[in-house]
């Protein structure tokens, strides 16, 4: 009969730790086997590319491989920083992400509103219907934008013309790109974004509300002074997580919305990496730009986490 550790009389030794580890491995080897598929996956798909990122400092030549390619130091970075499009890419990337971040409070407000609804069925329907767009793929979303915003046949321009205005070529105008990108994203994410807040709101102690009522607090006051502070920890964590995705989020959608006419505002770092790297085959240069992007991302995450830790009790680490 197999049994747990205590019954397997392993002799006392100076190297007790080693024995214990060996015993543990002997008894639980299957648990370690359980880890193998995942660890293999992370090693191959995540850690080997981390090793491969050294091509950012090399002139990658496919036939010579990663190790055999000659070093170039920071040449690719210098070329990128000195190029005329560097500031444009950085500006566009930051602008679109900050714009997005400005809408961060909307799901919170919507969750506070939903939370005040008494009627079970109405509340449930509101939730089910507003969650639905979350399941629409980016391709379909951008496809809908293309259809709705078409200058000749689109719903929006039909309405504008019917009201006496002039048709606007929304998707080919640089000045419209950010608005369309961010607000279509909000349409998709607003309802879904309330889920966590609603759960946090459900956990608010009802006695607080009773006490506040006795003291004569209005509904609005109770929302602002009880509900909002109660979900603040959740808000902070989600905010940090959002920052963690800064610089990388939405790239797939931008790529779909991009065209030669709106590239003045739609060119972002990630789409540029895709173009130079995968379409033009400048692997090293593109890898350098990608590395720059992820380093900025990490710095931002660390800074925001640090601020959150200093100013509130909540942080990721």
């Amino acid at each position: 009969m197999k049994s747990n550790g205590e019954q397997l009389n392993i002799p006392y030794s100076k190297n007790r730790k080693f024995y214990r580890a060996k015993k543990n491995l002997f008894l639980n080897w299957q648990l370690y086997v359980f880890l193998l598929p995942a660890l293999t996956y992370f090693f191959i798909i995540h850690y080997i590319p981390m090793y491969g990122v050294q091509i950012a400092f090399k002139d990658f030549i496919a036939t010579k491989g990663i190790l055999g390619s000659p070093w170039t130091g920071f040449d690719h970075f210098e070329r990128f920083f000195n190029s005329y499009y560097f500031w444009r890419l950085l500006k566009n990337t930051l602008a679109i992400n900050f714009y997005q971040l400005l809408l961060f409070p909307l799901p919170i407000i919507f969750a506070l509103m939903l939370n005040e609804l008494r009627n079970g069925a109405f509340k449930k329907w509101s939730q089910t219907l507003t969650y639905a767009p979350h399941f629409i793929s980016v391709v379909v979303l951008v496809g809908m934008l293309v259809a709705f915003l078409d200058p000749l046949t689109g719903l929006v321009n039909n309405a504008i013309v019917a009201l006496g205005g002039e048709s606007v070529p929304f998707l080919t105008s640089p000045e419209w790109f950010r608005h369309i990108y961010v607000w279509s994203g909000e349409w998709q994410a607003l309802g879904w974004g309330t889920i966590i807040y609603l759960a946090a709101l459900a956990g608010v102690n009802p006695e607080l509300h009773e006490a506040a009522k006795v003291d004569g607090a209005t509904r609005m006051q109770r929302i602002l002074r009880i509900n909002l502070p109660s979900i603040l920890p959740t808000v902070v964590i989600l905010f940090i997580l959002d920052i963690g995705k800064f610089m990388s989020i939405g790239f797939e959608k931008v790529l779909l919305m991009q065209n030669s006419l709106n590239s003045e505002t739609s060119d972002i770092i990630q789409t540029f990496v895709y173009e130079t790297g995968l379409l033009e085959g400048q692997y090293s240069f593109a890898a350098a730009i990608g590395l720059f992007d992820s380093i900025i991302n990490i710095i931002l995450l660390v800074i925001v986490n640090q601020i959150a830790r200093k100013t509130s009790e909540n942080s990721l680490w």
Binding site: P49, G52, G277, A287, G290, L291, I298, L301
Partner: peptide
């Protein structure tokens, strides 16, 4: 495992792998 959330090689090195 968690480190992969913080940092990754990026699109190009992953593509090459």
């Amino acid at each position: 495992i968690l480190f992969t959330m913080l940092f990754n090689g990026g699109m190009i090195p992953t593509y090459l792998v």
